[in-house]
């Protein structure tokens, strides 16, 4: 031992130093690798991930009506907007917006506004045709969204999320 300590004082790396560090590193990597499955099991499982998309028939949704459907355990709002509402939403593009985004980017077809119905504050479901901007209002902590689903007032940080969707034909949309 004495000889080893003397060598270390000289700043030289011994074979023993190398073994300490190498076994420590291998042990740490091994422990991390073993811990990962224990953490990752908490992430969404295969069956949850499999429920990725839904198809919705739009023909029964009349103008001025909002329909709620369930997608990935969350409500999705599909609003058939009136011409007035579209005009209002486009006009508001230039208003003072907390999370600026043009209405054209939020609705692929202006008459169909499709959004995840989950408040971006803490996840409640906003109520439609309510609030100061006659769009959506979240009852939990008082966030107001406009008729484009953009946050206008209250604690929510972002606009209501627009999910990925594609129009399969004029009356069917696939969400997800």
């Amino acid at each position: 031992m004495t000889t080893n300590d003397q060598v270390e004082q000289d700043g030289e790396v011994t074979r023993r130093n190398f073994l300490y560090v190498a076994s420590g590193v291998v042990g740490t990597v091994g422990m991390t690798a073993a811990a990962w499955p224990l953490v990752d099991q908490m992430n969404p499982s295969a069956d949850v991930l499999a429920l990725a998309s839904v198809e919705v028939d739009l023909s029964s949704i009349s103008e001025g009506q909002t329909v709620k459907i369930l997608w990935r355990g969350k409500p999705v709002f599909i609003r058939h907007r009136t011409a007035d509402e579209i005009a209002k939403a486009v006009a508001d593009n230039t208003s003072d917006l907390k999370d600026p985004q043009d209405d054209e980017l939020r609705a692929e077809r202006p008459e169909w506004l499709i959004m995840v119905g989950v408040c971006t504050h803490l996840g409640c479901v906003p109520l439609d045709q309510r609030g100061d901007f006659n769009g959506w209002f979240c009852p939990c902590h008082g966030s107001h969204y406009d008729i484009s689903g953009r946050i206008r007032k209250g604690p929510a940080p972002r606009n209501l999320e627009v999910p990925k969707y594609t129009f399969l034909n004029d009356t069917t949309v696939s969400i997800g």
């Binding site: 953490v39 908490m42 992430n43 969404p44 499982s45 949850v48 990935r72 355990g73 989950v118 996840g123």
Partner: peptide, 11 residues
């Protein structure tokens, strides 16, 4: 990770 899904659900 907390939910085990996309919302509070069975997991």
């Amino acid at each position: 990770l907390l939910w085990g899904g996309f919302s509070v659900d069975n997991p």
